[in-house]
Nucleic acid binder design. Structure first.
Lengths: 342, 342
DNA sequence: TTGTACGCGTTATCAT
DNA sequence: ATGATAACGCGTACAA
């Protein structure tokens, strides 16, 4: 490893002081325009690169934001990240991304790693299995701003960027009812995650408004993975004609698709026998036959808003400090999977 | 932000020197066992956290590896990352992950960011549009080890962890031929990416061995995204019975699925009219009807091997330096999309 | 407008 | 087995 160029090297070459170089590299307005130009030119010429460590050591700031997500494998997540990356880079922040793989344990260790890396702020969407947020406490204690997105925690006093899950679920369920469905099953995730609790509420509300009795046995809680969705499908197949639902509203597209695939293999016609609605507008929703009715919400926007928020908090913007819930708009995309032939 | 605990604070409390504390925190064998214990206990008690910046500043090492991937949205990619994460964390390295979104420009800027962050080593899978690797040169110049995985660059003198794309494509094509297909189309990506060039070679070889004339018009090069796959489907639909292929071998599952979906919508029967084979064993390959025949290869393993390799290079292991191509095994998964009814 | 000088927290070297 | 010291590269208070 050959020697790195430092501000001292530039100083020597230009017969200026290191302090001036330091200022010049940041285009300090206190400096002579031409001096700044000379410094930048020389830096370029000599291949100078800014040393983040030395800088962070002085500033006690890393210009790095940490992101913890459940999984990176959905289009939805990657568009959130794209939105975050966009705003962050414009503001001069770098991102460190890690996955909890839906496990609280991993979420804890990721949070701890990021804490030790001294990220300036944290963006987090909670894992299925996260039951408390003690692992976030160190950030709160050190006044490091935290923004929750998508999956937040009930009662947390941090900012959250979310959608109105209640409304979205209400719309989807109402739509299924309008198609003539009366026995609507709801396949959802851990109800301690507020997004799922809210979706359940919306589902219930739609039933109630249409005078359909809520039946607890029609709500299946699972981790929404392939296996659980297949199990759900088998549960449905095992039901007699009386019990069997005429529609399923799933809390995400993937579980809806896995469930549909298994039912189709066993001769169930979709949407005629059972109509389907999902959530997230994943790419698969348009690959499956019939295309899946789903809830679309803007991943990019969520990412952008969450990071803007965080950066405002870092700047000490008081007005943001008091806004602790930002709700973005979502919409119902009606496709064939829920359109019963009349 | 309250004050951080440093080794000086620990030193004062324990009436030891900072140097001893530093050694103790790393469990130096030169120290008295009991001293080490006292130091660790006190550190814990006072809430000491190691300061990476100060440490990196001294060591000129960051214990961080950079990863640049085209996209994070496939199961294949996330399993590679999981494998990488696994080995890296065991060896005490952190990861910084970024996406090129298949664009060379973004890949360049990501590489530059990582270079400036002074990562200790780089893991990269090239974007579709990457035509040269001048942006990697700074790493070579500074002797920062680089390992290519999955998508490498022809003639590069770095280590690559790949699969035998030639063999895999050969097997897939041969399988299609065995099903009685004679007019096999190949839908692939940019041929400057060696994985695609190799797959094309394997495809050609299989044709040749079966005395089927190679027809250039049957090879469609694209970026393999949704739009291109749909365009390919339209191209097929526009062909007359004579020209129209009886099978399509796609260089990835996603494009195969998009293509199939569009053809199905236009009344083409799969596999009877046109058989399909993909590549990667993505989750969608088992969601689509009929299930997609594909090439499976172990993402986890690729990730693990690539990181082990990189870490060995960092340790100055000469034996690794000379191995510059590690080829992992892949296998053909036969599913309904390619099984013609006899 | 530019320079001087010190400190950020850690660790390698040398000394004890 | 432990201590003293310098150095890593940068930024800033203070001085000029």
């Amino acid at each position: 490893m050959q020697k790195e160029i430092t501000i001292y090297d530039l100083a020597r070459e230009l017969k200026l002081s290191p302090a001036t170089i330091s200022r010049g590299l940041k285009k300090s307005p206190a400096l002579n325009k031409t001096t700044v130009q000379r410094i930048l030119a020389k830096a370029e010429e000599m291949g100078y690169r800014h040393n983040n460590f030395a800088s962070s050591l002085r500033n006690k700031r890393t210009q790095t934001l940490g992101i913890i997500v459940p999984r990176l494998n959905s289009y939805f997540m990657t568009s959130i990240l794209a939105g975050m990356e966009d705003v962050a880079s414009k503001e001069g922040y770098d991102l460190i991304i890690s996955q909890s793989l839906e496990k609280m344990e991993l979420e804890k260790s990721n949070a701890s790693t990021m804490f030790n890396k001294r990220i300036d702020g944290l963006l987090i969407s909670l894992a299925y299995t996260t039951t408390d947020i003690a692992h976030i406490q160190p950030f709160f204690d050190k006044q490091i701003p935290v923004v929750f997105f998508d999956r937040s925690f009930p009662g947390v006093e941090s900012t959250s960027v979310v959608i109105d899950n209640y409304q979205a679920a209400y719309k989807a369920t109402t739509h299924l009812i309008e198609q003539g469905c009366k026995k609507i099953m709801h396949l959802t995730g851990n109800l301690t995650r507020d997004i799922y609790a809210d979706r359940l509420k919306g589902y219930k509300q739609a039933l109630e408004e249409n005078k359909i009795a809520f039946d607890e046995k029609r709500v299946l809680v699972s981790t929404l993975n392939e296996q659980d969705a297949t199990t759900a499908a088998n549960t449905i197949l095992a039901m007699d004609a009386e019990q069997r639902p005429d529609a399923v509203f799933c809390a995400n597209d993937l579980s809806a698709v896995y469930c549909m695939v298994h039912l189709k293999q066993h001769g169930i016609k979709i949407p005629d026998d059972i109509a389907f609605a999902g959530f997230n507008n994943d790419a698969v929703s348009r690959m499956i036959d019939p295309n899946l009715t789903t809830i679309d919400y803007p991943g990019n926007k969520i990412g952008e808003v969450a990071v803007s928020c965080l950066i405002n908090l870092l700047k000490g913007d008081e007005s943001v400090k008091n806004t602790n819930r930002i709700i973005l708009h979502s919409s119902l995309l009606i496709r064939e999977s829920s359109l019963k032939k009349k």
